[in-house]
Design a protein around this nucleic acid. Structure first.
Lengths: 263, 263
DNA sequence: AGATTCATTTGACCGGGATCAAGTAAATCA
DNA sequence: TGATTTACTTGATCCCGGTCAAATGAATCT
């Protein structure tokens, strides 16, 4: 099998042959169907959607799906593995915007400018579906339920970022890490994986960057959570031994509000 | 003229009579057309869009467009005045999500859950266009350019929140206020208003809440900016006397990155 | 106009989390 | 396998911005 030295999906030539692999993993057989774009589509519409999906070879740690400034051509959906997105200032600093698990769509922020405004980098060996946006948009002209699902997905992304704004604007370091772990837990659960026992595919540095915290703070918090019996942590391996306590921490009323409400 | 004691648009009964007012302010005559939903639409499509727009009576300070948890029926566009959106935790605390100026669309985060996930409150006497989402969606099935514009608007909202994440995650208090003022300035300019001389319709408390800062910090920063000759401030009246300096402040490389890049 | 309430400003102080500095453990590589 | 690099942890210290407290100024209400 020839393996060209391409590291980005977008750089792959058009009109790839339909491989055996791509047939096996058709949308209709994909376990992620209810988490992904086909949600709410009739079977025949899933087939039409499937026909525009490009399934390229797996990517490896460090590979880019796209980089900030690239012309916008496609949305991407993680099939297996995980991907981080991040914005970079021209000077080199970066802000992690999200960690994306199977079924999650990447690139929705690029539609308006017709160019990517963030970069997407693969955290571990990952399979990714590519959805040429022009084709997707055409398809959504003729499939109302697909259009509706697109609106839903875009809206969901907005609502999610809203939650992140609340996190960064109002919550303590402790709350941020707890919220992060709980989010991962819930997303793993939805995907049929253990919500209490998983491996992190991102570094402490990336977690800190994402949560607006220094690496050292993240490290200390892991140690503290461990000491408090909330979790067991061994390098990248996390076991949430007291999910209830973590949930309580996240939904807890901030101290500031307690005080204010008493007056 | 009868004035029922309704304080929310959504509570207004369906099928209002077409008033003289609503004819005068048809989309085709609206100065906001190029900032708003009609952007990129053919004149005949603007008319079709116009036919579903509901233009209700002006709202006043403190009126709600909708509240978190309300069933999602319509998107709203500010025509004149300003509106703030905010998320509230059940305990009473709130996080301001945005301040919305004429031409800006509100409610996009409600599509997915079919319920509002934030509240929208009018900051000053304001006129607002209501776009019943069901009708809008139907219309976008038959007008590809409207569908495209919807995708663009949703995408723009995502990209904008991304910028806010960067703001809250990485920037200093000083940078946050400067970014906020610059954003207002640029938005006023786009609307043909002075980018350097304007009135704030929101309180210091609301600004602080939005930027993840204490009221006192906001107040001190205004004083400092004033002392440094960046602006003149008299209560709600702001004059940006050194826009260049504010721009430089915003695009400046964070100190942390400077240090890191030197090593 | 005077009283009340609310918004803003200013000062004093404090603390959470960043920064600085080392040390340790893993992963990568020759 | 040892050498080098990178990731993570831990401790010490510092500082930005939050909190507390009080004064002042606007706006609203009688």
């Amino acid at each position: 099998m020839n393996t060209p030295a391409l590291t980005t999906l977008t750089a792959l030539p058009e009109g790839k042959i339909i491989s055996f692999e791509s047939i096996r993993v058709a949308c209709r057989n994909c376990t992620l169907m209810t988490l992904c774009l086909p949600l709410g589509l009739a079977p025949e519409d899933v087939e039409r959607l499937d026909s525009i999906v490009r399934r390229n070879r797996p990517l490896h740690r460090g590979d880019y799906l796209f980089q900030s400034g690239d012309r916008f051509r496609s949305l991407f959906v993680v099939k297996t593995g995980s991907v981080k997105t991040f914005a970079q200032s021209p000077e080199g600093g970066e802000q992690v915007l999200g960690f994306h698990l199977p079924g999650e769509i990447i690139g929705l922020d690029a539609i308006e400018k017709d160019a990517h405004v963030c970069s997407a980098k693969v955290l571990e060996t990952s399979a990714v579906c590519e959805l040429p946006f022009g084709r997707l948009e055409e398809l959504s002209f003729t499939i109302p339920s697909l259009q509706h699902q697109m609106y839903r997905l875009l809206s969901k992304e907005i609502a999610h970022e809203t939650e992140m704004l609340l996190l960064l604007g109002k919550k303590s370091a402790e709350d941020r890490l707890a919220t992060f772990l709980l989010s991962l837990s819930q997303r793993f659960r939805k995907r049929g994986l253990s919500p209490t026992d998983f491996y992190l595919s991102m570094s402490r540095h990336e977690i800190g960057n994402y949560l607006g915290l220094a690496v050292e703070t993240v490290s200390r918090l892991f140690t503290r959570f461990h000491d408090e019996g909330l979790l067991k942590v061994d390098r990248k391996h996390i076991q949430l031994t007291n999910l209830d306590a973590i949930e309580a921490m996240v939904s807890r009323v901030p101290v500031e509000e307690c005080r204010r409400r008493m007056s």
